[in-house]
């Protein structure tokens, strides 16, 4: 009879073993994560706390505060720069949902938006990451596969072409949010799709899911000259990033939540860009949506972009 008892016991023992092995692996990887940092008092405890940091939306107010301070200290250690990291809350959902409209008859392909975005959002200069890609399109065709992505230093605008800048469309039903296995990316109440860079595991699945090629991966430690670092940052936005995680356009969350316009809009020399609150009937963007011929890119995929294109 003892034989029959043997089996369940064996399994229980087995689970115990599996448990300790798991713990060993966990502590091993922690050690690795810590070792890659500077191993000094505060740096050590910061790295440890960073490793065990909860998901942004699960943190208490105090935990968020501590996390923001940790990021500031880390920027000081790593880049020698004093930055401020805020977590300015979204406006109420009933009042504010952000949207963007872009006039493709005005866009001439100068790509000032691309580089203003790089500077504002602390994007890596080496390797280069851009949130905005301007496509040079054949007039008379909306076929993206016929577009030219690489028109470099050529003078623009070119005859027979029009220009289509594409960035994150901040979909109302974002495929990336559906795809992310860890809930590291989500849609904020004001409609901005954000990433918790501390929670992303870098699986690339959101890149695969996004129909707009809006998600970008840090294949290595981003490099930004110290003097070019934008020191006014947001936790969900332009704070200094690290290797191995995704990032994307956040409608300049650090600016727009304080009533400012996105950097790409301010940089546009032709005034092709309009940003605003979709719920404000008096806003310019509402005027455009109601009075211009607008369209959305790949509307048939039903992701409900909050980014419209229009013509004069």
């Amino acid at each position: 009879m003892t034989d029959k008892k043997a089996a369940p016991i064996s399994r229980r023992n087995f689970f115990k073993k599996a448990g300790t092995a798991g713990a060993a692996i966990a502590s091993g990887t922690t050690a690795l994560a810590v070792a890659s940092d500077v191993l000094e008092g505060e740096a050590y405890s910061d790295a440890l706390k960073e490793y065990f940091q909860k998901h942004y939306r699960d943190m208490s107010k105090d935990e968020v505060k501590a996390a923001l301070a940790r990021i500031e200290r880390k920027a000081k250690r790593k880049h020698g720069v004093d930055i401020t990291v805020e977590n300015t809350a979204p406006y109420a959902r009933e009042d504010t949902v952000f949207g963007y409209a872009l006039n493709i008859s005005k866009c001439k392909g100068y790509r000032k938006c691309v580089y203003a975005c790089v500077e504002e959002n602390n994007l890596s200069r080496d390797p280069e990451i851009h949130y905005i890609r301007v496509l040079e399109m054949e007039k008379g065709s909306m076929d993206l596969e016929k577009s030219n992505h690489y028109f470099g230093e050529d003078p623009v605008p070119k005859a027979g072409k029009f220009y289509l800048p594409v960035q994150c469309q901040h979909c109302e039903d974002p495929p990336c949010v559906k795809a992310c296995p860890t809930q590291a990316t989500w849609s904020e109440p004001d409609g901005i799709v954000v990433i918790d860079y501390n929670w992303c595991i870098g699986c690339h699945y959101c890149v695969i899911a996004c129909p707009y090629w809006a998600r970008h991966f840090n294949w290595e430690e981003p490099v930004i000259p110290k003097e070019e670092i934008n020191t006014e940052t947001h936790y969900l936005g332009n704070r200094p990033r690290e290797r191995g995680v995704m990032e994307k356009c956040t409608f300049c969350i650090q600016r727009t939540r304080k009533g400012k316009m996105p950097a790409c809009l301010e940089a546009c020399p032709t005034g092709a860009r309009v940003f605003g609150n979709l719920l404000d009937p008096k806003s310019e963007i509402r005027y455009i949506l109601e009075n211009k011929t607008v369209f959305r890119l790949k509307e048939e995929l039903n992701t409900e972009p909050k980014f419209w294109y229009y013509t004069d």
Binding site: P181, I201, G202, H204, N218
Partner: peptide
Amino acid sequence: VSLGRPERLWHI
């Protein structure tokens, strides 16, 4: 090996 942050495995 395809993860950017394998040490964050516990998130998954």
